[in-house]
């Protein structure tokens, strides 16, 4: 039986990662855990002394799922920008791939799925540490991992589709600072959306990260709302689907024209 093309694309990425594992450990595993320690424990101590609970949760319980999903988003955003442009511009690995029986559409799907696999790995490590710190009160908590993975896909697919159209990486730091960072900071990750000025709340509710965080927080705290959660999942799936559809076109245009 032959290996599906999409899996072959993922295999190439896995080989690259095997060489660069140290960077992954630092930036995608250690860094989120440091944030959890600083915010959940350090800042959490101050919150405890002042307000006690946030939305009925300790600050550690509140912030842990938020950081978990936000970290998955950051991983996805990073991986869908520089390496994607590198694949068509600096190293041209995608050009090499598309010269084989693998198609441009399969490359984008394979690549994004690979990013999702990494997000699952990073989220699992995060989850285990958070659970050991007592930040996962509910047994449903495991479902936060697929929530984080889905959220990673929702960012990776459209961003990869966009990155492949670019000629320089100048705009990437701008996307990180003006796009990804505000989402990281204002999508209900560090404080409830209800604290935002009322005009900004609908805007924040459009953020795919907020949908991911809501799903994950519902899971780790065992407060699932089936109706709302279905909406969250659908929104994230829509982002993935739209990203794939767009990516098929942009990858094909860049790689086969």
């Amino acid at each position: 039986m032959s290996t599906p093309p999409v899996v072959r694309v993922m295999e190439r990425e896995a080989r690259v990662l095997a060489r660069l594992w140290r960077g992954m450990v630092f930036s995608t595993l250690l860094s989120p855990l440091l944030f959890l320690a600083a915010m959940g424990l350090g800042l959490g101590g101050l919150v405890k002394a002042h307000t006690g609970r946030v939305a009925g949760l300790t600050y550690l319980d509140f912030v842990a799922p938020g950081l978990m999903v936000a970290s998955a988003m950051q991983l996805a955003a990073n991986e869908a920008m520089w390496p994607v442009l590198g694949g068509v511009k600096w190293m041209k690995t995608f050009h090499a791939t598309v010269a084989t029986p693998i198609t441009a559409g399969e490359i984008v799907v394979g690549y994004v799925l690979w990013v999702v696999v990494r997000a699952i790995g990073a989220s699992t490590v995060f989850f285990v540490v958070a659970a050991l710190l007592g930040a996962v009160p509910s047994a449903w908590g495991v479902l936060a991992i697929p929530a984080a993975a889905l959220c990673a896909g929702a960012f990776a697919a459209p961003l990869a589709a966009y990155s492949v159209t670019l000629d320089t990486d100048l705009v990437f730091p701008v996307i990180m600072r003006v796009g990804v960072l505000p989402l990281f900071l204002f999508s209900g990750t560090f404080f409830p959306l209800s604290q935002l000025p009322s005009g900004l709340r609908p805007l924040a509710a459009m953020s795919p990260l907020w949908h991911g965080v809501e799903l994950a927080r519902g899971a780790t705290t065992g407060t699932l709302h089936i109706g709302a959660d279905i909406v969250h999942v659908l929104v994230l799936l829509a982002c993935v689907g739209a990203g794939f559809a767009w990516g098929r076109r942009t990858f094909a245009r860049r790689l086969t024209s």
Binding site: L43, L46, V47, H50, T51, V54, Y59, R177, L181, P182, L185, F186, F190, F191, Q195, L196
Partner: peptide, 17 residues
Amino acid sequence: LFLLSIGIGVGKLVGKL
């Protein structure tokens, strides 16, 4: 952005130090 989110957003949960 950090000032707005952590300083002001989370700041409401922290109060005075």
